[in-house]
Design a protein around this nucleic acid. Structure first.
Lengths: 306, 306
DNA sequence: CGTTCTTACGTGTGTCGTAACGATC
DNA sequence: GATCGTTACGACACACGTAAGAACG
């Protein structure tokens, strides 16, 4: 058995069973990958893939058993290489972070500034995606970490670190009547057209549940994947905004007034997740540490460390 | 990086850093192994081994990090092969059991009989050793399971299953005065020369502690690694024997009388241990199941399932 | 001086790429 | 007929074995 054979198998799976796509990923020609897969099956003496004619379409029962092991082996192999690089104190490399817009725009900037001061030679990549993609990317080692609020706790492939908790705020135009109320109720919110996140992002699921439990029907006029869109439409007068509190920046958003809503909604937990058993390089650990430190230092009513 | 390189590294470590011994293990010439090790180090760009001149003497710091990963990788690789063989329903192969004399002689026979009925084509190997060796063998994958009472719980490399609990019995010649007492005390035992196990075997450690706690000094005239020796000398009139209760066989040992001592000593737990993350083949699982079932069925005052 | 590891060199296996073929949409 | 996967074949690389050399006890 050969590591490259396992690599081929996993890349194939990650490319939806397209041999040519896998070959491209691996910088090989299709035939080479075909041969590797064939040899692997021959060596094990039984097919790993379900075939429809010549097309590969899925894994056999044994195939998925092998897949799990193969992934572990490949993380192990990659770990050895990372450990060696780390040991050489190679302070150059890439740090691939997967996150949502909210994290990239409102949480990460100070962390990244600090990180870049410490490791100026490390290339930082921010891969923006939705929570499902972030889970997939972390699981496939296409990013080193994923940072977001949804989903990360679920996957058994991932290790996760709870980082901070946040809740929601109301944003409105300055003269809005709701700003006169100290602690608005869910009913108060329902009286106005609401702009907030789409389902799957930034706690929208829990947002919905709270209204459902109260048997209320909020009037969502618009939902968006990121806060900037929400703000733009609130400014435009389309409705009131319900956003993650840490997305309000009093310097940039002076034209909008913020009102805390944490008495209405559950606190959400944002986590960093990475592939289980993956070796964390020194500079990656530094990133996590800086992230945590930044959270602690920026203690405010908009979010809290955990 | 290559699996064979990792294999070479681990075999080298397992052979006390003798390249030639490792080469023999791997059915290669020394130079081939030398080259593999060299290539591995070159590829990682930093030495893994501490050298004294040409001799390899140990691992560098990085080396031991890599060792851990490499072992995991190799178990993974072996797992894939085992899964494939299992899937082919190859009911032939080898089952390598490491155990002490006590297990081999007094516990395993009915299990092995039953197992052999189910899988007549599987070759059973019993590797007898002391508890330290058993841990080492299971950790190096030189045996599939180790079965014994001592040590197995400790090693972080091993997974262990508690199987049954046992305690000690006194054996004497039939006319011995102690047999007149229902529940002898530690003091009673101290009045006679005692024959029991050597330290490291079959609960001798706890045996010692009990006397030490009671501030008593037992008169150990002879200690042996296995029960047969103890019995022989008891028969010979050298002293009274303290043995694991399950080692008494009323058919064979009719010339010796047994007296339960479980009111004096702590119960010991015998465990099956195997390499963590190792894939357990179907017939191996069957063996474990049969072992457990046999214990349950043979319920007696001499040991109890747990 | 024997043992043990390393280095140099020739040979053979095996993997990759090119290219032609076969199948599928 | 265009895309995708397999098979055949040649070229090259690489790992093993032989053999000679170097360091250690």
């Amino acid at each position: 058995m050969d590591i490259r054979q396992l690599q081929a198998m996993i890349t194939l799976i990650n490319s939806d069973f397209s041999v040519s796509a896998a070959a491209q990923q691996l910088f090989l020609v299709q035939s080479a990958v075909s041969q590797q897969l064939k040899r692997l099956e021959q060596e094990l003496g039984t097919p790993l893939f379900v075939r429809k004619g010549k097309r590969l379409t899925g894994l056999t029962e044994l195939g998925s058993q092998v897949e799990r092991q193969a992934r572990e082996i490949l993380t192990g192999v990659s770990n050895i290489q990372l450990m060696a690089e780390d040991h050489l104190k190679l302070a150059l490399g890439v740090l691939r972070i997967g996150c949502t817009h909210t994290q990239a725009r409102y949480i990460l900037p100070p962390v990244i500034r600090a990180f870049n001061r410490t490791y100026p030679a490390i290339e930082l990549q921010i891969h923006q995606g939705n929570p499902q993609q972030l889970v997939e990317w972390a699981g496939n080692d296409r990013v080193d970490f994923s940072i977001c609020t949804e989903e990360l706790g679920q996957s058994s492939k991932l290790e996760n670190i709870p980082c901070y908790q946040w809740n929601r705020s109301l944003i409105t135009l300055p003269d809005h009547p709701l700003q006169a109320i100290r602690k608005p109720t869910l009913e108060d919110l329902c009286a106005y057209p609401i702009i907030t996140y789409v389902v799957g992002f930034t706690g929208r699921q829990h947002f919905n549940s709270i209204f459902a439990e109260a048997r209320l029907q909020p009037n969502i006029v618009l939902s968006a994947a990121d806060t900037d869109i929400i703000k733009a439409y609130v400014l435009d007068g389309l409705g009131i905004g319900v956003i993650a509190s840490m997305s309000y920046d009093k310097n940039f958003d002076a034209s909008l007034k913020r009102l805390d809503l944490s008495h209405l909604f559950p606190w959400e937990t944002t986590r960093i997740a990475y592939l289980k058993n993956k070796y964390i390089r020194r500079y990656q650990q530094t990133f996590i540490d800086l992230f945590m430190a930044t959270i602690r230092d920026e203690r405010s009513d908009r979010f809290r460390p955990c």
